Amino acid sequence: MSTESPLRALEAIIFAAAAPLTLADIAKHIGERGDLPHLLRDLAAAYADRGINLVERGGRWHFQTAPDLAHHLRPSREAVRKLSRAAVETLSVIAYHEPVTRPEIEEIRGVAVSGGTIDVLMEAGWIRPAGRRETPGRPLQYATTPGFLAHFNLIHRRDLPGLADLKAAGLLDREPPRELALPFSSTDD
């Protein structure tokens, strides 16, 4: 019988993982060693004031750089690429209505969605194909990614602001921004 600490084993498994892990993934590696959610909360608390944090995004656990230190890791030169208003609106529709098809996005927005808009959002890592709808024509559905949650510092999609929050912030009382800055790393010098 091993005398290793469950927290140490948990830390090692999450650290070495190539991608964020679900509770089921973690349990496969360390087995049943007590209350896994409790152990994860304990480990996250132990890392709360460190340079890296243990976080849960969309039901998956991983280590990430502490948000207040991220600026130390950015490349020295960052090219800013603007998201068009259409891309911001499309991302919003997908986030609030996922999984959603292109025709549904177009119906909600009232205009056609170009393939380029979808491509930009997929390139940013914020949306992904989410299967096909079981309707005539079997249209492709889109959903947000864990990268979307991480970029917008959300734990779950239910953390998106509601209508009352948006009104309170004054975002529904005026014209929405024409463009949203989206940082893309550039290796050009």
Rank of each mutant, 00 (worst) to 15 (best):
T22I: 11
L140W: 08
L121G: 14
G170P: 05
R41S: 08
A46G: 05
P136Q: 09
A130K: 11
L10C: 05
P139M: 07
E179G: 01
A12G: 04
T117K: 12
E107I: 06
P37Q: 13
R33V: 13
D49L: 01
P129Q: 12
I14F: 02
P6Q: 04
T22L: 12
L171T: 02
I13C: 07
T135E: 07
G137S: 07
E11V: 03
G137M: 08
P67F: 00
A70P: 00
A27G: 04
F15M: 09
T117P: 09
N153E: 10
H29K: 15
A79P: 01
T22W: 10
D68T: 01
V100F: 10
R133Y: 09
R132G: 03
A44T: 01
R109T: 11
D35F: 12
R102V: 15
A124E: 07
Q141N: 02
P129R: 14
T90Q: 08
E78I: 13
R174W: 04
E89H: 11
R77I: 07
R85P: 00
R60Q: 04
E107C: 08
T90P: 08
D189I: 06
A169R: 09
L149R: 08
G131I: 12
E11Y: 04
H62F: 01
T144R: 10
S186T: 13
P99R: 13
Y47L: 00
L171C: 02
P176W: 05
G58P: 00
I52Y: 00
S185K: 09
R158M: 03
E179D: 03
S84T: 14
G147L: 11
L69H: 01
S2L: 09
V100Q: 04
A79V: 09
G31Q: 15
E175V: 07
P136K: 12
F152Q: 06
A19Q: 13
D35H: 15
P139F: 05
D25M: 08
M1T: 13
Y142R: 10
V93E: 08
I52Q: 00
L163M: 03
S2V: 08
T3W: 09
P176S: 04
P75R: 05
G31C: 12
F184H: 07
P129W: 06
H38Y: 13
E56S: 01
A87K: 06
